[in-house]
């Protein structure tokens, strides 16, 4: 049974008088533990697809189910719970909470989940160590480099052991060394923890890490192939 099933997804946006087809009859199956890169030019629908799977936006048409649960039919509250407990997000611009330290950023989601304080602390310290930020736990985002901030964002996304991590251009603002480190980290989490990754990217180096590469254009999937070299 597929972990994630997307069937005939359609989404249009209006920009002035123009109607833009962000998703045009996209059908997709994602297996548990998959490591997928979505590639394509800007406006090809990568981010829209991630948003739809993550329940951040509403479909015009189609179905999305995760482990048999219809995401597109959930109301706002259960959607928020789905994101909170089962999906991790990593954004291009890190999007950490600026007034919280690295550890507190990681703890924040766990606090909302109702994890006890002691366990939150233990888990956040462990995950920050795992992403290579040992000793930097008490620094605020402004005191960290871009790569370090993105690692905090990754730690925040995976600390609750979600089934799925959706990463939107995670390396776009990173130098090549940081980007490589991040992708190594993703691969390790995928291989060691079985987390499913769906990453949108322009970056050819990132695509090389993917087991499966899906190319999109004008809201359509134009190719979907398993990369044997991984």
């Amino acid at each position: 049974m597929p972990n994630i099933l997307c069937n005939d997804l359609c989404k249009t946006y209006r920009q002035g008088d123009a109607v833009i087809k962000a998703l045009d009859h996209v059908t997709l199956e994602i297996e548990p533990g998959d490591f997928i890169c979505l590639s394509g030019p800007s406006g090809s629908g990568k981010t829209t697809l991630l948003n739809m799977i993550g329940g951040l936006d509403e479909l015009d048409r189609g179905e999305i189910s995760i482990d048999g649960q219809r995401v597109d039919q959930l109301s706002k509250g259960p959607l928020a719970d789905l994101r909170l407990h089962h999906i991790g997000f990593v954004f291009q611009a890190y999007n950490l909470i600026p007034v919280l330290s690295a550890r507190e950023n990681v703890e924040f989601v766990m606090q909302v989940q109702g994890v006890p304080a002691r366990e939150r602390r233990r888990k956040s310290m462990a995950i920050l160590k795992e992403v290579g930020l040992d000793g930097l736990e008490d620094r605020r985002p402004a005191q960290l480099s871009g790569g370090q901030q993105q690692r905090v964002a990754v730690a925040r996304a995976i600390v609750s052991q979600p089934k799925l991590v959706l990463a939107d251009e995670p390396t776009a603002n990173l130098d090549s060394v940081s980007a490589t480190h991040l992708m190594e980290l993703f691969r390790e989490l995928n291989q060691n923890h079985g987390v499913t990754f769906l990453i949108s990217t322009h970056d050819e180096r990132v695509m090389r890490y993917a087991r499966r590469l899906i190319r999109m254009q004008d809201g359509k999937v134009i190719s979907d192939e398993i990369q044997k070299s991984v």
């Binding site: 993550g54 909170l84 909302v112």
Partner: peptide, 16 residues
């Protein structure tokens, strides 16, 4: 607004 959008995306409900 952006920060709140991110927090909402992480699964935090508006009432929080």
């Amino acid at each position: 607004t952006r920060e709140f959008g991110v927090i909402t995306a992480l699964g935090v409900r508006p009432r929080r």
